[in-house]
Design a protein around this nucleic acid. Sequence first.
RNA 1: GCCCGGGUGGUGAAAUUGGUAGACACAAGGGACUUAAAAUCCCUCGGAGGCAACUCCGUGCCGGUUCGAGUCCGGCCCCGGGCACCA
Length: 819
Amino acid sequence: MNAVYDPHAIEAQAQNYWDESESFRATESGEGEKYYCLAMFPYPSGRLHMGHVRCYTLGDVINRYRRLKGHNVMQPMGWDAFGLPAENAAIKNGIPPASWTKDNIAYMRNQMKRLGFGIDWSREFATCDPEYYHWEQWLFVKLYEKGLVYRKNSIVNWDPVDQTVLANEQVVDGRGWRSDAIVERREMAQWFLKITDFAEELLEELDNLPGWPESVKSMQRNWIGQSQGVEIDFQVVGDETTALTVFTTRPDTLLGATYVAVAPEHPLAQAAASENQEIATFIDECKQATTAEADLATMEKTGLPTNASVLHPLTGAELPVWVANFVLMEYGSGAVMSVPGHDQRDWEFARKYDIPVVQVIEPLGDEACDLAVAAFTEHGRCINSGEFDGLSFEEAFNGIADALAAKDAGRRVTNYRLRDWGVSRQRYWGCPIPMIHCDEEGCGVVPVPESDLPVILPTEVEFEGVRSPLTTMDSFLNCECPKCGKPARRETDTFDTFMESSWYYARFASHDANSPMVDDRVNYWAPVDHYVGGIEHAILHLLYARFYFKLMRDEGLVQGNEPFTNLLMLGMVLQDGKKMSKSAGDAGDPQKLLDRYGADTVRTAMMFAAPPDQSFEWSEAGLEGAMRFLKRLWGLVQEHTQTQAPDLDLETLTEPARELRRKTHTALQRADDDYGRRIQFNTVVSGVMELCNAVSKFPVESEQDQAVVVEALKMAVVLISPIAPHIAHDLWQTLGGSGALVDARWPELDESALEQTSLTLAVQVNGKVRGQIEIAAEASKEDILAAAKAEDNVVRHMEGKTIRKEIVVPNKLVNIVVG
RNA sequence: GCCCGGGUGGUGAAAUUGGUAGACACAAGGGACUUAAAAUCCCUCGGAGGCAACUCCGUGCCGGUUCGAGUCCGGCCCCGGGCACCA
């Protein structure tokens, strides 16, 4: 027995025990229902930060709790190893991305081990391993053959000085972050995955995910953005063969359309530019803009009229065609109809350029409607719309849709905001896109044959400037066309790193599979039962991962429809108001905290700081308190295990001993609910603290008192063990627990210990607390009210008034309404 | 701009289904022990008034529903996340 709590010795011992016993090696033949617990794998940026500590501790707490509950748990770990920072480090320090990444992984793996996470390290991999990305390339070729992959032009941020494509993050105030040159929009051929083919399924399946937070489902629904509307053709004047097609959710306002606007890249705009210098200049200016939607949404809306015009499909009126900076070629057809009377953006544009504003909808009730002040955007009743006058929104929607259909000038469509997934990146440190470009006629773009996969990314590279070394590396570039055998060139673009993070959860289940991608073990482990990660991934990563799972399903690789059953979205850990992954340097490095306090204290402080879904500013203030608590628990256990306690004899317990047992089992009940249902661990810590406080205050006067205290301490140790597993491992042995705690089972609740003979109720008069009464637990409503009305302060507040109402809330309070 | 969150003492927070606001901690102040310090233990700790009993006010702001609102509804303010090439 040790009088002093020595976290470093205890933690090393516990970790050795787990290693040697292979406690966390997960097998498909393990006992109990499988439980796949996964925290989002990290980008190996260098060192862990406190955001990582929080995320992986939370995952580990769930893992260890489920294990206590008898599940066959798997908790793997790997590395999201491709990405921009490795290239930046290479450009800055001349270190090749592969070795930089490898060193970071080694360092971070050690930190994770030091934190005592119950990870099955035998399943570890990094996404930059060819054995991993091999199968990503394989699936991409399969999808290409199925027609789910295509190539089209798309706009990127182009740095004219560095001659390179920039990520949105690398564009600061419209300039390249390195060159400071004004960034241009440039079109480039890119590979796309047809995620829009799955828009409907991705939307509908959200209803089958009760284990996901509503907020995340809502964000995904809005992102997918299903809308019912009508596609309308506007015949171009002077060109019988061409029509501008626009989509609208408000066909009821069609008679109020006063102009049509097209994107700067639209052929009509381009044609106008060739005849008009002013338009050409305007279009050039539009090119100097970011591709980020947030900027597009807030920038000033500008435009110019062209000479072109179109015919209104119902009235035949000529409407002018404008070029406008807010219309995007990427969305739909690159053209919109504008109804300034009933759309606020169109209204502002029309007012600015003196375009007529026509009212065609009037309010149904008394909503404000003054088109001189603002557009009227609510649904209403049609006016100034000829045969459609007087119709409601639904009637007009249908009437106008039918009228257009009859003229073959429109059709009802379901539209999605979701766009296809552009997966090409003009970067070196990523998975090579397995495609070959051949100049021979009839060849063109040819996928790399399955037998030639993987296309391995060369890791011995030198960066000259900022461009991808692949673009100038002959040994990589030159190849044979798989179709005609003549010299051809490899694709030098690599995949978006979201490609790797979209299926790693499945690979963990069969990390060494040589059959395509995954083998049958995946169907034991998948879906992930609990997926833990930052709220910043609520849309893109989770949507792509869901999409990928469906692609794999359709390929016959996995069963089921969704990859993640339960989702825990973490708030962010902030440092000086910024999120950890964005703050510079080692500000958030937990290493010195681990050295000073040990893993259990760091874990406990982190769990105690805030509930999982809440963002908070990290502060070291809580560490001393967490350390103090663990020391106290340590001391209490040492103090009460000096002599052997007898078995509990419930019949002979004193009233205070029964009270302590009640607290012990209340703590169990609440911890079970917090761990299992509420996923709120800060209150588990405070619950165990309360139990320890109760033990401290409890005077041991008999052997049975000691037995009750030992039961309480054993409870405290088991309940805190998912959070502080090392000290719990040690104290469990001191307390005479059987076997290792890591293999123990969750304690059984003794319902009889929870029973109370008397209750304290609050008494309110007119909703304000005026006193308390102590009353037998089985007292009737009449008894309770009588006691309440006898309470001194209550009597005073009721004096001279008439009782209007009496409310008794069982086990809580009484409210007497007087007047 | 749009979508999704959040706002409670000096600080982190608790209050689970509309039922006693501030549990549990941190910091601070006071005390015990000590030659001293550390550690540990005890007490106080939302604001105002009062010797006290107790009273009034108080969960970002304004309004509403209710016997009762931190919790529900309407309107605002501020902060955070995401917006498709950061991961």
